[in-house]
């Protein structure tokens, strides 16, 4: 009889512990991450990073993929608003089209954090970006350096392979790049878009242009995955690493591999991990509607600047130029070594 009683008490004690555990590890709430697509490595890794970092600071994260469809992302926003999450992290498919959805969410008391894609037309609660225009500007600086090294001055012919012509992300990079290159009269830029960001379209552009303009000095591609097809097209034309200089952007693993093989000279990184970490660091402040102060913050060791803009607090994290000299550094997300240390919320 005593044995049965002991068993009963033990069972009750275990049940009590079991019931208490979730309370101990209670989540601060659910944050939805609206990812624009899962068809490129940056976005795929952003899901892992945001989910991990938000968990570090006590939130559950749920990701919804919009498959690059604006209308689908609008529907997802509408559905999510009804679920009353702690916040929404939005990487917008279309910068302008999502504006009413952001306003609707905020009117419903749900804070909205813009990730990677800056929306300036309407206020958000927080924005974490590398700056797409700045990526173009960093690329321009590197291209000026490479052309000077090769031709003695900043002159030559550049083939710029954009992403999809309907994607403002690519158009912003183009703007930043071309604005910085304007002052160099000796530079000719041929710009062509790879429809739907499809690598085979980039390969076709490179293939045609290398025949029509064999004097191309440098190819600038707006995403690393496009450079793989570009390299395949160059190989098919009998080119070897270094024959044509190449730069691409976003810092995906494929780009880093191509640097190691000597095909790519520079990869302009979007600091994915730091951008995602910043979202987690400021999540409490955003969710609790506390003031975010302007200033410089260390985000994964990177000096990042928060400014209070017309569209709300905005953190800009510097993108880095990856070359053969620093390609193996773990801070680059293309090496797929997400920081193991827990993210600490900003006080």
């Amino acid at each position: 009889m005593n044995r049965i009683r002991r068993l009963l008490i033990s069972s009750l004690a275990l049940t009590a512990i079991g019931l208490a555990s979730p309370a101990l590890a209670q989540s601060k709430g659910t944050i939805y991450y609206m990812v624009p697509t899962l068809l490129d490595e940056f976005q795929t890794e952003s899901v892992s990073a945001i989910e991990k970092f938000l968990k570090d600071v006590g939130y559950d994260a749920i990701t919804l993929n919009a498959d690059n469809k604006t209308d689908l992302q609008q529907s997802q926003m509408n559905d999510t608003i009804l679920l009353k999450p702690a916040a929404i992290v939005l990487a917008a498919v279309d910068f302008n089209a999502l504006q009413p959805s952001i306003e609707k969410a905020r009117a419903a008391g749900i804070p909205v954090i813009e990730f990677d894609r800056q929306i300036t037309a309407t206020p958000s609660d927080f924005t974490s970006v590398a700056g797409t225009i700045e990526i173009g500007q960093v690329a321009a600086g590197e291209i000026q350096r490479l052309l000077k090294e090769k031709n003695g001055e900043v002159k030559g012919k550049i083939l710029q392979v954009l992403g999809d012509p309907a994607d403002p992300y690519s158009l912003d990079i183009q703007k930043g790049f071309e604005d910085k290159m304007k002052e160099f009269a000796g530079v000719t830029i041929i710009s062509l878009p790879a429809l739907q960001w499809a690598p085979e379209n980039a390969g076709t552009i490179v293939s045609d242009q290398m025949v029509a303009n064999p004097d191309i000095d440098l190819i600038f591609l707006h995403a690393a995955h496009l450079s793989v097809a570009a390299v395949a097209a160059l190989e098919a034309k009998g080119k070897k690493p270094g024959d044509v200089m190449m730069i691409s952007s976003n810092g995906a693993p494929v780009g880093l591999d191509l640097i190691r093989k000597g095909w790519l000279n520079v990869e302009v990184e979007q600091p994915l991990y730091a951008q995602a970490a910043a979202v987690a660091m400021f999540a409490d402040k955003v969710v609790n509607k506390q003031e975010i102060k302007a200033g410089t913050y260390k985000v994964l060791g990177l000096d990042s600047v928060v400014t209070i803009e017309a569209w709300g607090p905005n953190i800009k994290i510097p993108g880095a130029a990856i070359t053969k000299d620093n390609v193996d550094e773990p801070r680059f997300w293309g090496n797929l070594k997400a920081p193991a240390d827990k993210i600490v919320p900003v006080e």
């Binding site: 899962l38 068809l39 490129d40 429809l195 739907q196 960001w197 499809a198 690598p199 085979e200 390969g203 995955h225 793989v228 097809a229 390299v231 395949a232 190989e235």
Partner: peptide, 16 residues
Amino acid sequence: LLAIRTSGATANLGTG
């Protein structure tokens, strides 16, 4: 043949 041409594959290969 597409994989051969692009020396690999991405998730959006052949879109459109």
